[in-house]
């Protein structure tokens, strides 16, 4: 029930917001068309501006993934994962989630295909996927758009959020599904 409402809401939201914004602007006597075009002009510029940041970030992640370093890391982290009750099959997910959106999506599908989406591992891995965002992509794109390169504690804060999200996913799944 709640789910249906939420899903309907996410479909209706955009057209409604746009209609509301345009109607309100028209009432306030804003030259709607000109104003929209003036804003839209920035789209190209922003997209171009983030390219170097995105290339730098994605290439480094690509090298890391292709090299097989992940498999080595997973083996090294297996004892620690065991200690907190995290199944070894989902450790790559915890490591990959902050790095790549498409990679962790593929990994989630792969793990669920192997163990079944309704198994404990299946539920856990999809919860982990839903509990976080692709941190390094967000950092590269958002900072890139304003040419910020001294990022201070952004990486640390983002990774702490990711780690807590992964552990929170593990905790709630253990509580509810064994």
């Amino acid at each position: 029930m709640i789910k249906d409402i939420l899903q309907a809401l996410s479909i209706v939201a955009i057209p409604f917001i746009i209609a509301a914004f345009v109607a309100y602007a028209a009432r306030k006597k804003v030259p709607v068309y000109e104003s929209f075009v003036a804003g839209a002009k920035g789209g190209f510029e922003v997209a171009i501006k983030i390219i170097p940041y995105l290339v730098a970030m994605l290439v480094a992640i690509g090298i890391f993934r292709a090299s097989g370093a992940m498999e080595i890391l997973v083996k090294l982290l297996a004892p620690a994962a065991n200690l907190i009750g995290m199944p070894p099959q989902v450790v790559p997910m915890a490591l990959l989630r902050p790095l790549t959106g498409s990679g962790s999506l593929g990994l989630m599908a792969d793990i669920m295909k192997r163990y079944g989406p309704d198994s404990f591992i299946g539920i856990l891995v999809s919860t982990m996927y839903g509990s976080s965002e692709t941190t390094f992509y967000v950092l590269a794109v958002y900072f890139g758009a304003v040419n910020v390169y001294r990022t201070r504690h952004a990486v640390a804060a983002g990774l702490i959020a990711d780690a807590v999200g992964m552990l929170g996913a593990l905790l709630i799944c253990r509580l509810l599904f064994g």
Binding site: Y24, K41, G43, L58
Partner: peptide, 26 residues
């Protein structure tokens, strides 16, 4: 891939920046 992602953003980006400008001006 990086360039593809960035270029793919142009259209949606332009649209939402346009809407945002409208919302700011009003």
């Amino acid at each position: 891939l990086a360039v593809k992602i960035a270029l793919g953003l142009i259209g949606v980006m332009a649209f939402w920046l346009g809407i945002m400008k409208l919302a700011e001006d009003s």
